[in-house]
Design a protein around this nucleic acid. Structure first.
Lengths: 219, 219
DNA sequence: CGATAGATTGAGAGTTTTCAACCGATGTGG
DNA sequence: CCACATCGGTTGAAAACTCTCAATCTATCG
């Protein structure tokens, strides 16, 4: 999971005015669903302001937080490029503003905006690495380690946002209560500080060392 | 996870002779390491014959099977396109033969072989969906369900190969013994047949129904 | 100020892993 | 061609995480 740290802002991009001006502005409010799992992807979206989560709600009620998109992130590019239906829903975690680009499909972007196309491809490639690193973590590490790494990842990528225990858990496969217990433990160990709902990471290096010390799964 | 089934062969591609003839042929044997985690990606590879696993070995010894590549699959395209070091190792699961294309990087492919570039992009996009669907499964489903879905996925994609309990487990986050117990249970329920080391799936639809019935994780 | 969402804590339950022993098949070298 | 080593598979009992459920507390917002 360490690689995440070196790539905290990889997916943030400043668009040139020539592209920006072609987007259609649209505001959204916290809790809004920006697209639904199963919908056909019709356009490429960019976040001017705000923060959005890609969430999967399973039929049995289980929810997971797959990715998070902040200011200057694209959104919905995976489905757009491959022409699939969305495999998860985008839910606004804060108020904000979108730019919508009504391109017809991957071919149009590739032909007319090759740089952007390459950028999007590389974003997906990094997303895939991160997803697979998370897979390693979830199958090979204790929940405390996963929570530590999630804290570091989410905090570094989106410092402004106050992550809830639930969101942290949904990102790393843990229940809310488990996250609470882990945070209490970390606070007692002097590795984090809780201030109301805000969480401060005292020393990332120490946190990572603590994580590694957490009795790795044997075998 | 159901979507996997509709895309069993998505990542298989027949290359035209114009591309094929430019590749350098290289044989490999079962157990060979085709590239190592941490290596710099230098070329694009295609599998003429054989089957290859993308494997992560964590420092604590935990192993996971991230993806599997068969005949007519590309290999190593994620790292190649984004210009990253490999985040996992490629290990030959059988004897086989590679074609190596010494392209200099993503830009060259985009400029000279735009169709191939689009294909690779879409492959990564599908890989990302599959990885995230697996993430949902691993956090939200019981181990028996995961094993069932893994059996179906791996068997459909690579019918010729005899999957071991260990590989099945490494693909869905379960220990070898757990896979054994699950298979015994499924055999007793008449849903699969074991014939030596070969596993026959009697009825995929029934298997999926059984999977859903397996007391979903609450909440 | 009340309502609601989020956080905390405890006790008990349950799934999956761990550890250990054993079996059977496969393959290799003498 | 047999002996033996090795790999994969099976089974059982015990241990260990993490979850579940329930109750209570706190923060935030209208």
């Amino acid at each position: 999971m360490k690689l995440h740290l070196n790539n905290a802002f990889d997916n943030r991009i400043d668009l040139p005015p020539s592209i920006l001006e072609k987007g259609i502005t649209k505001r959204f409010k916290k809790g809004d669903i920006l697209f639904n799992k199963g919908d056909q992807s019709k356009n490429l979206t960019y976040i001017n302001r705000g923060i959005v989560g890609l969430v999967n709600l399973a039929p049995n009620g289980h929810e997971s937080l797959l990715r998070v998109f902040g200011e200057k992130f694209f959104l919905g590019y995976r489905s757009f490029l491959v022409g699939e239906h969305y495999h998860a829903s985008a839910i606004a975690l804060s108020d904000g503003e979108l730019l919508i680009f009504p391109y017809t499909g991957a071919e149009e972007v590739q032909a007319h905006l090759p740089e952007l196309f390459l950028h999007l491809t590389r974003m997906i490639a990094r997303d895939l690495r991160i997803a697979e690193e998370r897979f390693n973590d979830i199958t090979g590490k204790r929940v405390v380690s996963r929570i530590i790494e999630t804290l570091i990842f989410l905090k570094q990528r989106h410092p402004g946002y106050q992550w809830t225990r639930r969101e942290i858990g949904e990102f790393c496969g843990a229940k809310t209560e488990t996250v609470t217990r882990a945070l209490t433990k970390l606070e007692k160990a002097g590795l984090i500080e809780k201030e109301g709902r805000e969480i401060h990471l005292s020393d990332i290096q120490e946190l990572l060392e603590y994580s590694e010390g957490q009795e790795a799964l044997n075998q």
